[in-house]
Write a protein that binds this DNA or RNA. Structure first.
Length: 472
RNA sequence: GCCCCCAUCGUCUAGAGGUCAGGACAUCGCCCUUUCAAGGCGGAAGCACGGGUUCGAUUCCCGUUGGGGGCACCA
């Protein structure tokens, strides 16, 4: 039997980290088994579902490169099918009409609460004569669920989980307004889509019991279930807005790479021995849903940053130049031909110093900014009169260099420091300040090679005569 | 309240009835060094608690505690 899985978000908000990992596990599972990975938008709650949310989810999946193998199924479009399934259950005697009003149900629950009993529908219309129904009031339709025995799930992650049927009540399948409930829709859709494995957050674990009963009532073969633990915030509480950015597209804006995001997410709850860094291809090869752990994990930004730093270094220099472009333009820098060339040449030194594309853009800016470049306070402070004097005198030896490479530049600079009676480190920091406007940068001689002699001499002169504007 | 799930360094995790309980991130120190990184080397840091089972449990069982999830005419 070939594997068919689905990711089924409800479009009531953006795609968050937890949903993204659920999608990733579904995707990995499908790829590993050579199966299909589908997307179903559970938009039956028209009140809360929005077009923007659908788009946000699609964008998020797109960015993470977890696109579905087929066009998405919209649950709202399948309403007739859902209603028909309920009618079938009614005719088969596996469902019944219930005329309880919301007030009546609330009363019942209040009484149960007061008596310390579990709050469940007591099945009062289960065997009652429909002839006694109040007129002019539309009923809901409930599943005639088994009242004895137990329902057992053989979950791929949670193992065997069982619950007494007495704990479960007769759930509503069709509301009094004639619309199907989530429980019903999910099951009917999963059956119709031929879903073989339902992989989702373990907040659905207790739902699975009721859904299983529905599969039996519909005489359908239930899928295998795999309920994966949720992701919590750093404080151990459920992930929420106060934990900061949650939408996956916000991580894109923070300069994370999709392969890094996938790598980080797949390691939450799943491990392949000691392997921390895994390419997506390796993960596809190794992924095994039954190896997923059962305990929840916390989201850790520091680890994400570290994983991202790794995958940035794996990217080619040319790739990174394109990736950083929008982040540069965000800080007001447009990348022209000269800038591109410099960035490509200097990327090797830049990329091992940045953990995100945002950081990369910040550290790359000096290569691209037009003269005179801004100089921050600390760099200003390094440009003492003594250092400036040495910078003024540096033009000569640098101009006389026959070849402009890191080796020749280095020996010229060291010789110059000696000639000026200045510790090399002081001259180096002065040059760094003059060339980058900062005291933190890639290697000095790499910078000089990349900038080229003319630009280097010009920037040195700017600094020597104090032409650079202060930064901020 | 009822039902279900979970529990190894701060975090993500590996692990097996007998291991010096391993790795990664973070953290601390040293090396490298023109700054910052990267890299290398090293340190500190963990089996929640109480009972069993067993020659021996962190590992298996039960309980406690703590966390999480679910108990709708939401999804």
């Amino acid at each position: 039997m070939s594997v068919v899985v689905r990711f089924a978000p409800s479009p009531t908000g953006y795609l968050h980290i937890g949903g993204a990992r659920t999608a990733l596990f579904n995707w990995l599972f499908a790829r590993h088994h050579g199966g299909r990975y589908l997307l179903r938008i559970e938009d039956t709650d028209r009140q809360r579902s929005t077009e923007q949310a659908i788009q946000a989810i699609l964008d998020g999946l797109d960015w993470l490169e977890l696109r579905a193998d087929e066009p998405p199924v919209f649950q709202s479009a399948r309403l007739e099918r859902h209603v028909a399934a309920v009618q079938g259950l009614l005719q088969a005697g596996r469902a019944y009409r219930c005329w309880c009003t919301p007030e009546e149900l609330e009363e019942m629950r209040a009484a149960q609460r007061a008596a310390g009993l579990p709050q469940r529908y007591d099945g009062r219309w289960r065997d009652r004569d429909p002839g006694t129904a109040p007129s002019g009031q539309p009923p809901v339709i409930r599943l005639k669920a088994p009242q004895t025995g137990e329902t057992v799930i053989h979950d791929l992650v949670q193992g065997e989980v069982r619950v007494a049927n007495a704990q479960l009540d007769d759930m509503v399948l069709l509301r009094s307004d004639g619309t199907p409930t989530y429980m019903l829709s999910v099951v009917v859709d999963d059956i119709d889509m031929g879903i073989t494995h339902v992989i989702r957050g373990d907040d659905h674990l207790t739902n699975a019991f009721r859904q299983l009963q529905l599969y039996y009532a519909l005489e359908a073969t239930p899928p295998a279930f795999a309920h994966i633990p949720l992701i919590h915030g750093p404080d151990g509480a459920k992930l929420s807005k106060r934990h900061g950015a949650l939408s996956v597209t916000e991580y894109r804006e923070m300069g994370f790479l999709p392969e890094a995001m996938r790598n980080y997410l797949m390691r939450l709850g799943w491990a392949h021995g000691d392997q921390e860094i895994m390419s997506t291809a390796q993960a596809v090869e190794w992924f095994d849903i039954t190896e997923v752990g059962r305990s929840p994990s916390r989201f850790d930004m520091a680890k994400l940053l570290s994983v991202n730093a790794h995958w940035m270094r794996e990217r080619s220099d040319a790739d990174l130049v394109e990736l950083v472009r929008p982040f540069l333009s965000r800080i007001g820098i447009t990348l022209e031909a000269t800038g591109s060339t410099r960035l490509t040449a200097g990327m090797a030194g830049l990329k091992q110093r940045a953990r995100t594309l945002v950081e990369l853009a910040q550290s790359a800016a000096f290569y691209v900014r037009p003269r005179p470049i801004p100089v921050d306070a600390k760099a200003q402070a390094a440009l003492t009169e003594e250092v400036r004097a040495a910078l003024r005198e540096a033009a000569g030896p640098l101009t006389r260099l026959a070849t402009w490479n890191e080796e020749s530049i280095e020996s010229a600079c060291r010789a110059h420091a000696g000639a000026m009676g200045l510790p090399f480190s002081k001259l180096a920091q002065g040059l760094r300040a003059a060339l980058t406007g900062s005291l933190v940068s890639p290697g000095l001689f790499e910078i000089m090679r990349v900038l080229g002699r003319a630009e280097v001499l010009a920037r040195i002169e700017d600094a020597a005569i104090g032409r650079n504007p202060a930064l901020q």
